[in-house]
Design a protein around this nucleic acid. Structure first.
Length: 438
RNA sequence: GUGACUGUAGCUCAAUCGGUCAGAGCACUUGGCUGUGGCCCAAGUGGUUGCGGGUUCGAGUCCCGUCAGUCACCCCA
């Protein structure tokens, strides 16, 4: 083997290709009913789009982006996430405006330079939705219930929804300050009981909110550290409470996780994560348990991003699903059932004997495929009938058409039902319509 | 970026203390069955043991490097 796929990428084929196609099809089907419009944005964008939106000090921007210059020295990046490009496209094409509801979905590859491991690749796929134009908790509720509806249609049950309220530019700075003040006064000597890990000491200045979901320090600081819920302003709190009420009324179960934060700067108010909860596997209700890539979908509200990227003041909320992670959650039984239901399993295999039959067989194959039949044939290579029958069996063909000199002279073909082993002759004239009768 | 483990036919795996150890099963091809699949039987194709160095009389086995995979950290969907 001379070449291999670049680190963190992989080829998608066979069963996995079918599953992914199924996930996409189902998403399109459901999202269309909820009136979400599909949007595809470029794989690469100007670097600034991401540094402005995702945040200059986030790891995504600082160390995970694939950045390159094109021949005109334009600084570009492979897209590391989907929201900023959609917002850019929505502004640029005037797809959104204040007071108007616009809803989009996308599905495609994203790129982050990370060390690969289970559920984490350098090229990964996300399916996401973005809901523009409403500050109402009803919009938050809609995108959440859309995710729940989608998961339900995929037979996915073993998951939990975690929510938190991050506040807004009015109230978050105050909290940030309180948090920092708390963290700074903690003793930092190695012997101190409430010492923070090296990462968190760096985070104090850079991104103090991230200390909250640190796996190492959680047991020391939880219960003592200031929480944002005690600092959010009245309107942020009201928004969150209304959303929770909607979820409860509509029987969508959730848990509030006061330590939940995001690694992207543009979120305001509502943030959420869907995590798996299969007992015995990784994660679940037990946060901070080992086994990390258990969040298979996440998102939140971003009321200021459109404005920050040069658009008007338009609030929005959305989420993204990590496709590879979603696939890990799915029940094999459910999916293979769905796939079986879709595959027609009506393959017809044409076997020929002799050169004349081969030439004639080629025409028959063309005709049948043109008439809508799924056809494979053994005439590409000279093969014994036995070899062709074996191949047909391996392909799980439902019928085999046999064409030899004998049949050719009498203008018929032998039809064999591979399950019942019954054989009968069919006239070559009007073969498609004859076949449709069986 | 850090740490740990792993790398032998297409796949799953064997090979004692470094010494005919480069093998098995499955898959594939062919034959047994001159125009008929699955089961059975037989034969055959297929590997510079990830790659590159080193130690040694001798390396799949030991050492170093490198690439890749897996897992954890970091981070995130």
């Amino acid at each position: 083997m001379v070449y291999s796929a670049p680190r963190g990428t992989k080829d998608i084929f066979g069963e996995e290709a079918k599953i992914r196609h199924f996930l996409d099809t189902k998403a399109r089907e459901i999202f269309a009913r909820w009136n979400y419009q599909e949007i595809s944005t470029p794989i690469f964008e100007e670097v600034n789009l991401f540094t402005r939106s995702v945040g200059e000090t986030t790891d995504i921007v600082e160390k995970e982006m694939y950045v390159f210059k094109d021949k005109r020295e334009r600084l570009l990046a492979l897209r590391p996430e989907g929201t900023a490009p959609v917002v850019r496209a929505a502004i640029e094409n005037a797809l959104i405006s204040p007071g108007k509801i616009s809803k989009f979905f996308y599905s495609g590859p994203f790129y982050r330079y990370e060390r690969p491991q289970a559920g984490r690749q350098r090229e990964f796929y996300q399916i996401g939705v973005e809901f523009f134009g409403s500050v109402s908790p009803y919009a938050d509720f809609e995108v959440l219930s859309l995710a729940v509806e989608y998961f339900h249609n995929l037979g996915l049950k073993e998951y939990n929804l975690f929510l938190n309220n991050l506040g807004c530019p009015n109230c978050r700075p105050e909290y940030r300050k309180a948090l920092k003040d708390y963290l700074v006064q903690l003793p930092h000597s190695p012997t101190a009981t409430s010492q923070l890990c090296a990462d968190c000491q760096r985070r104090i200045e850079k991104n103090p909110l991230r200390v909250l979901d640190c796996k190492i320090d959680s047991k020391n600081i939880h219960g003592r550290i200031p929480l944002i819920k005690d600092y959010v302003c009245e309107s942020c709190n009201k928004h969150f409470q209304e959303l929770l009420a909607l979820l409860t009324e509509n029987k969508i179960s959730y848990q509030i996780d006061p330590y939940l934060v995001r690694g992207i700067d543009y979120y305001t108010r509502t943030i959420f994560e869907f995590k798996n909860s299969v007992p015995g596997s990784n994660a679940g209700l037990e946060r901070f348990s080992s086994g990390s890539q258990d969040t298979f979908a996440a998102g939140g509200r971003y009321d200021n991003l459109v404005k920050e990227l040069g658009g008007e003041d338009i609030p929005a909320v959305g989420w993204a699903i990590g496709v590879e992670r979603l696939i890990k959650q799915l029940s094999k039984e459910f999916i293979s059932q769905e796939l079986r239901a879709k595959s027609q399993e009506q393959l017809i295999y044409l076997a020929t004997i002799g050169e004349k039959a081969r030439k004639e067989g080629l025409k028959i194959v063309q005709t049948l495929r043109g008439a809508g039949f799924t056809v494979e044939t053994g005439l590409y290579e000279e093969k014994s009938l036995k070899a062709q029958m074996r191949e047909a069996d391996g392909l799980k063909a439902k019928y085999v058409l046999i064409l030899g000199e004998d049949e050719l002279n009498r203008k018929v073909t032998t039809l064999r039902d591979m399950q019942t082993k019954e054989q009968k002759e069919i006239k070559l004239d009007n073969l498609p319509s004859e076949l449709k009768k069986i």
